[in-house]
Simulated scan of single mutants.
Amino acid sequence: MAVSPLQATHRSVVLQEARYCDGCGCRLSRYNQESRCSGCARRLPHAPYVPPHVWQSGELQAALFDRDFGRVCLLVRQLAALRQDDVAALTGLSQAFLSMLESDVRRLTNIDKIIQLLDGLGVPSELTGPMLRVSVCVSTS
C-alpha cells in the first residue's frame, strides 16, 4: 500500500510535535497546552496528610466506632480533600483495594491491614482504642 506525500508529511509532523509530561514522562495529548498531564497537574505540591480537624467529625467517629473502614476512608477523603491515590500513599494499601473497600465490595478484616490503615491515616488512638494500635513495649531488663 502506497503512502501519499500528504500522509507521510502529516505522520512526520505528528512525530516531531510529540511532547511529554514534565512530571511523569507520559505522552501529552495534542490538545493539552500545559507542560504536565492532568494527573500530575492535580497532584498536591506537598505530601498528602490528614488535617487534625477531620477527626472531630461525628459521622467519622461513628464509622470508626462501627469499624466501617470503607466509610472511614470515604469520609476522610471527603473531609481532607484527598484522592484515593493520596490515601494509598499514606497507608500503603492499593488504590484499587481502597476503591473496593469504599464501595463495600471488599471488607477489611485482617488486623495487620486495619492497623496499617489507621496508622497511615494518623487516626488518634483515643478514637480507636488500644486494641487497634501498635503499642511499643519497653523492656526494663
Rank of each mutant, 00 (worst) to 15 (best):
L75G: 03
L75S: 00
L75P: 01
V76C: 07
R77G: 10
R77S: 14
Q78C: 07
Q78S: 11
Q78D: 06
Q78F: 04
L79F: 02
L79Q: 01
L79S: 05
L79W: 01
A81Q: 12
A81L: 15
L82Y: 10
L82H: 01
L82S: 02
R83V: 10
R83N: 12
R83W: 14
R83T: 15
Q84A: 10
Q84M: 07
D85K: 09
D85W: 14
D85H: 14
D86P: 02
D86Y: 08
D86E: 12
D86A: 04
V87W: 03
V87M: 05
V87C: 03
A88D: 01
A88T: 00
A88L: 01
A89Y: 13
A89F: 11
L90T: 05
T91L: 10
T91D: 13
L93F: 07
L93W: 02
Q95L: 09
Q95K: 12
A96S: 15
A96E: 10
F97V: 08
L98G: 10
L98P: 09
L98I: 10
L98A: 13
M100P: 03
M100Q: 13
L101T: 01
L101Q: 00
E102F: 03
E102D: 09
S103D: 02
S103K: 07
S103H: 05
S103V: 09
D104L: 08
D104C: 14
D104V: 12
V105G: 14
V105P: 09
V105W: 07
R106Y: 07
R106G: 01
R106N: 06
R107H: 08
R107N: 11
R107W: 04
R107L: 08
R107E: 12
L108S: 08
L108R: 02
T109H: 13
T109D: 10
T109G: 10
N110S: 09
N110L: 06
N110P: 05
N110H: 06
N110A: 09
N110K: 06
N110Y: 08
N110Q: 11
I111T: 09
D112S: 00
D112W: 06
K113V: 07
I114Y: 00
I114H: 00
I115S: 06
I115A: 03
I115N: 02
I115E: 08
I115L: 09
I115G: 03
I115K: 13
L117K: 04
L118G: 06
L118E: 02
L118P: 01
L118V: 11
L118F: 12
D119Q: 15
D119I: 12
G120V: 06
G120R: 02
G122W: 01
G122K: 02
G122T: 05
G122F: 04
G122D: 02
V123E: 00
V123S: 01
V123I: 00
P124H: 08
S125K: 14
S125V: 11
S125Q: 15
E126M: 15
L127Y: 08
T128F: 03
T128L: 03
T128D: 03
T128Y: 10
T128I: 12
G129F: 11
G129V: 08
P130D: 12
P130V: 11
P130Q: 14
M131H: 14
M131R: 15
M131Q: 14
L132N: 07
L132Q: 05
R133P: 05
R133A: 10
R133H: 11
V134L: 13
V134P: 04
S135P: 08
V136L: 11
V136I: 13
V136M: 08
V136C: 04
C137G: 06
C137S: 09
V138T: 13
S139W: 06
T140P: 07
T140V: 13
T140F: 04
